[in-house]
Amino acid sequence: MILEAVMLHVKPNLEYEFEATFKQASRIISSMDGYLSHELHRCIEVKGKYLLLVKWQSLESHTVGFRGSPEYQEWKKLLHHFYDPFPIVEHFEEVEI
């Protein structure tokens, strides 16, 4: 399992619209092969800041499968105009302790 972690900075005064649109876009990502789950968290201290966590079966499920799909183009169209600056996407694997 791979965890995708993304800090999102939504442009001022677009938070409500972003959250509504993200709910719609969630149907896209959750339909993808290799998708396991996702969560969106709103920051309490900083208005417009969100943390997106997505669990994928493999790195390629996200980087090749999702990003290479027509569905990703729709995801981009729905969401990417909300961000400033554009987010950095990072991937993590669990450390067994």
Rank of each mutant, 00 (worst) to 15 (best):
F22N: 09
V95M: 13
V46M: 06
H91Q: 01
E4G: 06
G48W: 04
Q57N: 08
K77L: 09
F66Y: 06
S37Q: 09
F86Y: 14
G68D: 04
M32W: 01
R42H: 09
E60F: 00
S61E: 02
C43S: 15
E45R: 13
S26L: 09
G48V: 00
F86H: 10
F66N: 01
T21A: 07
Y35F: 15
D84H: 10
I2M: 12
V46S: 09
F92H: 15
Y50P: 15
G68M: 01
A20Y: 10
N13P: 00
F86A: 10
A5M: 14
M1G: 10
L40D: 14
I88R: 14
V46Y: 09
L51E: 07
M32N: 11
S61C: 03
A5V: 12
F22G: 07
E71S: 13
V95I: 12
H38Q: 15
S31Q: 11
W56M: 03
I2A: 04
G48Y: 03
F22L: 10
K23A: 14
N13L: 04
K23C: 08
G68C: 04
W56V: 02
V46F: 02
E39P: 01
Q24G: 05
K77V: 01
I28R: 12
Q73E: 13
W56C: 05
T63G: 03
L36E: 11
I29C: 05
L53R: 10
E4W: 01
E90D: 10
Q24V: 15
S69T: 07
L79E: 12
Y50C: 07
E90R: 14
E93D: 01
S30R: 13
V10Q: 06
I44C: 13
E94L: 09
K11M: 10
Y72D: 01
L78Q: 14
S61Y: 00
V46P: 04
R27Q: 15
Y35I: 07
G68I: 00
L53G: 07
L8I: 00
S37G: 05
V54G: 04
D84R: 11
E15Y: 03
E39F: 03
L53H: 08
P85Q: 03
V54Q: 08
E71Q: 15
A25N: 06
H62W: 02
Y16D: 12
L79Q: 07
T21C: 12
E71G: 08
L51K: 08
E4F: 02
K47H: 05
